[in-house]
């Protein structure tokens, strides 16, 4: 059976759903960040697949490179915030760090 665009997009859709599940159900802030990484990977895989099968030019891959850089930057800042969260609350459970709710 020949591998087409549909296969790649299906894999990416499943990865996105798993990331979304992770995002919804996890309470640890670092685990939520892992879910975000899954979602970003799914999106970048889509960019590369569409650029290969529908466009034929490497522009989609350039977008994916920019996306990878943005994902790395986002991870760095998010983990710095998680560290500060841990210093302030002694936990990174998002169900317990509810100071702003009053």
């Amino acid at each position: 059976m020949s591998i087409g665009l549909g296969h790649f997009v299906a894999v990416s859709a499943l990865l996105f759903s798993l990331g979304l599940f992770c995002l919804i159900t996890r309470r640890n802030a670092v685990a939520i960040l892992m879910g975000i990484e899954l979602i970003l990977n799914a999106a970048l895989l889509n960019l590369a697949a569409f650029s290969r099968y529908l466009h034929g030019q490497p522009d989609g891959q350039i977008f994916a490179v920019f996306g990878i850089v943005l994902a790395a930057a986002e991870a760095v800042v998010a983990l710095a915030i998680v560290l500060q969260l841990y210093r302030a609350f002694r936990t990174v459970d998002t169900a317990e760090t509810t100071e702003l709710k009053g």
Partner: peptide, 28 residues
């Protein structure tokens, strides 16, 4: 690694993945 809302999460997981996979297999 505590979890919360497993049932709504599973509903969203199944619904979103089924919809997306159906759409992309039909389209591509």
């Amino acid at each position: 690694n505590p979890t919360i809302g497993l049932v709504p999460g599973a509903v969203v997981l199944i619904a979103v993945s089924a919809l997306l996979v159906y759409a992309c297999v039909k389209e591509f």
